[in-house]
Design a protein around this nucleic acid. Sequence first.
DNA 1: CCGGTGTGGAACATCGATGTTCCACTATCG
DNA 2: CGATAGTGGAACATCGATGTTCCACACCGG
Lengths: 189, 189
Amino acid sequence: MDVRTAAADTGTKARTRRAILDAAVTVLTADPAASLADIAAAAGVGRTTVHRYFPERADLTTALQQMGWEHVVQATRRARLTEGTGAEGLDRLCQEYFELGNVLMLVFNYSAPDGDVTWECDPDNQSVLDLITRGHHDGSIDPTLTGPWIRDILWALLYAAWQQSRTGVASRHQALDSCLRALHKVVAP
Amino acid sequence: MDVRTAAADTGTKARTRRAILDAAVTVLTADPAASLADIAAAAGVGRTTVHRYFPERADLTTALQQMGWEHVVQATRRARLTEGTGAEGLDRLCQEYFELGNVLMLVFNYSAPDGDVTWECDPDNQSVLDLITRGHHDGSIDPTLTGPWIRDILWALLYAAWQQSRTGVASRHQALDSCLRALHKVVAP
DNA sequence: CCGGTGTGGAACATCGATGTTCCACTATCG
DNA sequence: CGATAGTGGAACATCGATGTTCCACACCGG
């Protein structure tokens, strides 16, 4: 057990931890003020178990933030921002982010109250800004729109699209399609 | 005093009530989980006084929602949605909404947790949808984008723009300008 | 079978927010 | 000047969430 402790990603403990984190994502996106009891119930575990993995509430939210940003980073990598034109990369990024679903919403919502350092804690913020700059130069992105503003538009559109999908106003595919078309029209020169 | 009781909009009580509501908007947009003590301090009144005007927290949030939507309704009226093309009306609506500032953010944020009936509680929701439909017909708004989706894009862009302005990334005027240009490009056929 | 591991639940202490009561202070108006 | 309205603050009770402790149960590998 000693050797496996560090890398026990498939053990019982790791599975329980994942279950708690997943449930927390779902519950907290629906109600950011949900209690630990709610999260425990949603995860199908006892409240005691939650405290066993995350002694304090802050430990859970920290782990959530960390996991959320990791997902964002992975999605950014999958989007292969350095390939093709700037607009094409932005398109892929939008698709990848959309697939994150609730996780994206959580990162989006939880960043605001903590402070205004939202984007500084995103390790891939610079990659995205660089992508937009490249788009400015290759003529695929309107140069009158600044990098940060386009980044914020991307997130805002994703938020709106996900809400549409979540409330059943539109199907998941329709929401993504609308989002991509809107983004495409905004960034076009 | 008997006669004035109902219409005492300028009296001491009315001013205190306004001060509490205004402070609540500011404080709750910054931190939705702020305590009544925080709001009282921001309003420059005692916590007792807050309870005197709003016996329970729910009474305060209800009054806030009501006031917020009233502001939205007034802004909608000022935008004169029935004049000019659909796109022009949408432009004016965006400007008016932007001026609402924190109030808009509060309505935007507080609607989500309460339930998914966000738009149904907006008395002017139908006016906006009608405006977009008119834009579809007069050729000023892309008919492939549905009414609800454009409405959501409007709010999402306003949210992003206001954040930019609030965090000092862009000036108030720059943020509004960026927002209007983005909106214009999105809705253009 | 038995010992360790992971878990659930009950019980308890604590803490912050909330809501209530009461009293003193101040300003304004008749 | 005196009455009244409006306010602030202290004190208190309450409630829900949180965090902790302890014990019993189930499962699984040696």
